[in-house]
Design a protein around this nucleic acid. Structure first.
Lengths: 248, 248
DNA sequence: ACGCTGCTGCGCACACTGTGCGCTAGGGTG
DNA sequence: CACCCTAGCGCACAGTGTGCGCAGCAGCGT
């Protein structure tokens, strides 16, 4: 009776189902997607490749995820979960909010640089789709501004402002770093190549050219850190001034 | 002799070649791509659809454009060309730089909102690929900060800071507006739907909830404008303070 | 113990994508 | 006239997201 051992390949296809790792789940899918994205970048994420990594077929994922766009939203919220916005503690220095906000901003930047692919995706997802992690972190950050003394409506604007700054700054860093990773060159080599092209186009643009030359020998990574810190400081200065003018 | 009128479709395929509009060129391709993107959004841009609009086959485009990524870079630089950064005029008020920078920032925001698809693309292109339009506008904006009195290295950081802010803020606006456009609903309907979902997730997040409720009856578009202006003001305040502390 | 019901994973198929290859026809130059 | 150069095209290939219907398993009520 052939149904017992029919020798058709369906048998060992069944077999693997048995011995495989824990069954698919949305959490497992999202976690593996983050790993894939970190390792190979955004263009390597396809339902098939992700399925392979999980020992599953491409379409199996659709049992746990509506479509690729939803998967990406989930993945973005997942990495928002890595943020650590300081709890607004009880007794801190009068300028404590500055440090807390700066720490949050630095953490957000670090997270994006750890996962540079979020840059490619923020423009499509936006901050509109609010996952649980994003909302939780927002709430805590908002509390920071409240605690600092901003009235409700301004706290909210202030928070959006600093998030916008961090995202804008870091997205362009991340895009640059992704390009670097894809090119396979060292940063020195890439900069050399870029400069060669740039020199031609900035020939008649003295200010830009002067900037390029000035930054010639510097460590690019340190420059990025400093540039980020500079803007953030200006920002916090502006917010602090506003706070003081409100208090009077 | 069948070669004279072979009745195979290749004949009228030839015919059209003759009567068609001006021949393909990189400029025509890029311009039509911008139009397509404005009308139908980023996901509607394919080499085939773009070719159709130009009365050409998909692969014909590759004679004038290396690949789709390069096309996108060209398209982005094209819209940068719409910016109008004020020339640093001769004699202006001492705070003239504030207005000029604010005008540039507003122009950049308006451009992105006119072409919301740039938001989806900035993360992949970054500001690294510097087309002629982008560099020209940067030079002029840099001149603004120089004229205001910032030393060279700070002018550069200041410019990047305000660009980062505008991009960060506007990208999330644009993502929201794209979603709105795709949904086909009115803004009121969409907000209603979003709020229904949000209300559940912000149940235990009092600050966020308070914000949602407060903004309930307001005009969303005016709120966005005000929010943008608020952050920009704080920013310019911070820069101005820095400028004064440098001058002393 | 049995059959039913619902859920999970999968193979297949479809429409569609970006892009390389090699042909053709037309315009310019010798 | 012969020639070559180039713009445009059809074809083809590999790879994409995703709908559909089937197969086997888990847990249930009887």
């Amino acid at each position: 009776m052939p149904t017992d051992k029919p020798a058709v390949p369906s048998v060992w296809a069944r077999q693997r189902h048995k011995r495989e790792q824990p069954p698919l789940s949305q959490d497992r899918i999202v976690a593996e997607a983050v790993r894939l994205l970190d390792e190979e970048g955004i263009e390597a994420l396809s339902m098939r490749s992700l399925g392979n990594r999980l020992g599953a077929g491409a379409t199996s994922l659709y049992r746990h995820v509506a479509n690729k766009d939803e998967l990406i939203e989930l993945v973005v919220d997942e990495v928002y979960g890595e943020l650590e916005v300081p709890e607004p503690g009880g007794s801190e220095a009068p300028d404590g909010w500055r440090e807390s906000v700066a720490a949050s901003a630095g953490g957000l930047r670090a997270m994006i640089l750890r996962h540079p692919w979020v840059a490619s995706v923020l423009g499509q997802v936006g901050l509109a789709r609010l996952g649980p992690n994003l909302t939780r972190q927002s709430e805590r950050m908002l509390a920071l501004f409240h605690r600092a003394g901003f009235p409700s409506d301004e706290a909210d604007r202030a928070m959006n402002t600093v998030i916008a700054y961090v995202v804008g700054m870091t997205v362009s860093e991340a895009a640059y770093l992704s390009m670097l990773a894809r090119s396979g060159q060292s940063e020195q080599e890439l900069m050399e190549g870029l400069r060669r092209v740039a020199e031609e186009t900035v020939r008649d643009l003295p200010l830009l050219r002067e900037g390029y030359e000035r930054r010639g020998g510097e460590d690019p990574s340190r420059l990025r850190d400093e540039s980020f810190a500079y803007g953030l400081e200006r920002f916090l200065d502006g917010l602090q001034a506003r706070l003081e003018s409100l208090g009077s």
